[in-house]
């Protein structure tokens, strides 16, 4: 998918689609976390919502035994081969399941508040969460004070995108 950027004059927030590299869902028991870290060469945070980064690889802890792994496409095969068969785990590629939006600008918290009931001012920079945007399950990451990514399943993306654009236009009006 190619990146499309829509901006509006005076818009306090921009909405873009970020092309995905490779994304996996990794599941293993918390007790096996260190084995997984060693095999992947990437720390696996044990607190839900925390993110670790090593080289081009990133792990976001979504549940007690669940991580979202992002990596460059070139490393996909290496990741598939990294975890030993003796380690009970599930590694499932979900790259094609997801569409990721990048939302950036001073109005980004207001824009997200259209669809998310959580208090996002409390989400620290560099952390993420699985939550709901306008009834659609989404994974949110705060990359910077005014930049978030919002990932939703593919078929929900048009609904979410339409609302994000409407919200961005509404914010640009300043009413």
């Amino acid at each position: 998918m190619t990146a499309q950027i829509h901006t509006f004059p005076r818009s306090p927030v921009t909405v873009a689609v970020r092309p995905l590299a490779t994304r996996f869902s990794l599941r293993l028991r918390p007790g096996h976390r260190e084995t997984g870290e060693a095999a992947l060469g990437l720390p696996l945070p044990h607190r839900i919502g925390r993110i670790s980064v090593e080289g081009g690889r990133q792990a976001l802890c979504l549940g007690p035994d669940e991580w979202q792994l992002d990596a460059p496409e070139a490393e996909a095969d290496a990741i598939r081969a990294a975890l030993p068969g003796s380690l009970p785990h599930a590694l499932v590629e979900v790259t094609d399941r997801e569409v990721t939006f990048v939302l950036e600008g001073p109005g980004v918290l207001d824009l997200l508040s259209i669809g998310i009931a959580r208090d996002l001012s409390r989400l620290e920079i560099g952390r993420g969460a699985r939550t709901v945007f306008d009834g659609v399950q989404a994974v949110l990451v705060r990359e910077a004070g005014e930049r978030f990514t919002l990932s939703v399943w593919r078929s929900f993306a048009p609904h979410v995108e339409e609302l994000l654009h409407r919200g961005a236009r509404e914010l640009a009006l300043g009413l």
């Binding site: 839900i48 979504l62 549940g63 007690p64 669940e66 969460a129 699985r130 399950q137």
Partner: peptide
């Protein structure tokens, strides 16, 4: 008082 189950279905899934 009711003892009941919930699932954090759109969160950690537990």
């Amino acid at each position: 008082t009711h003892y009941e189950r919930w699932r954090h279905v759109h969160g950690c899934g537990r």
